[in-house]
Amino acid sequence: MIREFSLNDLVFMLEALRWTVGLAIIATIGGGALGIIVAVLRVVAFKPANWLAIGYINLVQGTPLLGQLFVFFFGLPLFGIQVDAWVAASLSLSIYASAFFGEIWRGSLQSVSQRQWEAGAALGLNYWQRLTHVVLPQALRISIAPTVGFLVQLVKNTSLAALIGFIELTRASQIITAATFAPLPVYTTAAALYFIICFSLSQFSQRLERRFHVTR
């Protein structure tokens, strides 16, 4: 019943990596789109919109992702809404990511000095021109590092989707460990695979930063 850690297991882990990467990509796209809305609601000069965004951010950041996954996958069926694991994982990971992206981007927008807005106005630019030509390019540069930093977290957090039936990298490692009784080589391999993804992301971020001259 106890067997060796073999090449087949490595293939199984690489296959599981598809879900890890796939879920992270979905969460980035879904969370990014929602995050823009959250960031905008958070900064517009309309108090109720700010309150709504703040409430949303606090609710999402203040509850564990594990609990959110549980609610979507096991909670909704109680009200007669059948959701499959893909829908539940995509929804909860996107919502989770949107709250963090929203805050990161709000911070980036607000860290562009008020004087930049004023300087733009002095040049006769209207609000939209000031936003797109003066403030956004600067905010974008500032946001690269924290955005990618959160992406790295997101990649690792996809392991929670194991609870609702996904066999992603961590769950695959757990299953192989249970069959081989060799946690050390299995989890070392998993760690190496996570590292490859996360390190590539960090490198990509640094290249982007250089291209946009963040420190200029």
């Binding site: 019943m1 073999s6 069959a179």
Partner: peptide
Amino acid sequence: PVDVAPFGSNDANNNPVG
């Protein structure tokens, strides 16, 4: 289960057995 040998675990071809 697929993580409780010998009741359920993945064999060398990653099919559940037990």
